[in-house]
Design a protein around this nucleic acid. Structure first.
Lengths: 136, 136
DNA sequence: ATATGTGCAAATGCTTTGCAACGCC
DNA sequence: GGCGTTGCAAAGCATTTGCACATAT
């Protein structure tokens, strides 16, 4: 009863896989994890289910800097910096520090709809800094 | 003297093309605009130059929801919502409203490096809402 | 029974790369 | 002249799609 109309083994397996981890993972990684867990699911099916789950807002999805889509269970809204029209790509600059509070008012003021905010910070965590340094 | 070591006609053409607009554009769109303007440049060259310019921080680059890279002249830093390691994809949640001011402190606290923040809001602008409605 | 979901493989679309030709410095 | 840069076409990747088959309800 989450996304599609029917409950299939594959769909449940995708949901289960999402519940197996708190981290953002790519569709490919999730599929790989499922296969390694013994699930028999097609990659396309994983893509299709993740897509519809994300569309339903049932799971979080964000875009990695390299353009890969990453998925994770749960959902929380956020914000961004540029106000960009998804259709024409024209953008309106958002100043900065007052953004959090003004986000809603701003969006309303500009009359944008179908807002999609996602604020992520990408960087290298301490653990990886060490790991990467060790490999040098 | 911006990115590479040599000043070529093509490299300058890409920079000029970027200065022709304030909007975020995909590499393909920028290349198309250049060709229509009469420039003779290969698509790969446009990709290569945009890439290195972005890497040098000479231009802004952001990822569209569909995974396309968008470029624009100038640069301004911003922020996000999830603190995600670019290497292992592990993430740390950022609460929300106090983010702006706490971003710097937070990043420092978690010891992340090579931070890349980009906060954009995607939606449909009023103009496009009208256009799209008219097409129905 | 029948519409929906799945699997596979082919197709897409953006981006990168190999390599020879080219042209700054 | 030498090395960075370009062009073109081929390769790469993540993701989507067409279509026949399987299956929830």
């Amino acid at each position: 009863m989450s996304t599609g109309k029917r409950n299939t083994r594959q769909k449940q397996a995708v949901i289960d896989a999402l519940n197996d981890s708190d981290e953002f993972r790519s569709a490919q990684k999730i599929h790989l994890d499922m296969v390694e867990k013994g699930e028999k699911v097609g990659l396309a099916t994983v893509y299709r289910n993740l897509r519809s789950l994300a569309q339903d807002g049932a799971i979080d999805m964000l875009m990695a800097p390299d353009g890969e889509s990453l998925y994770r269970r749960c959902d929380l809204d956020t914000h961004h910096h540029h106000l960009v029209c998804r259709n024409c790509l024209r953008s309106i600059e958002v100043t900065g520090s007052e953004m959090e509070e003004l986000l809603h008012a701003l969006v309303e003021k500009h009359g944008f709809t179908e807002i999609e905010h996602s604020l992520e910070i990408f960087g290298i965590c301490p653990q990886c800094q060490a790991d990467l340094a060790a490999k040098e």
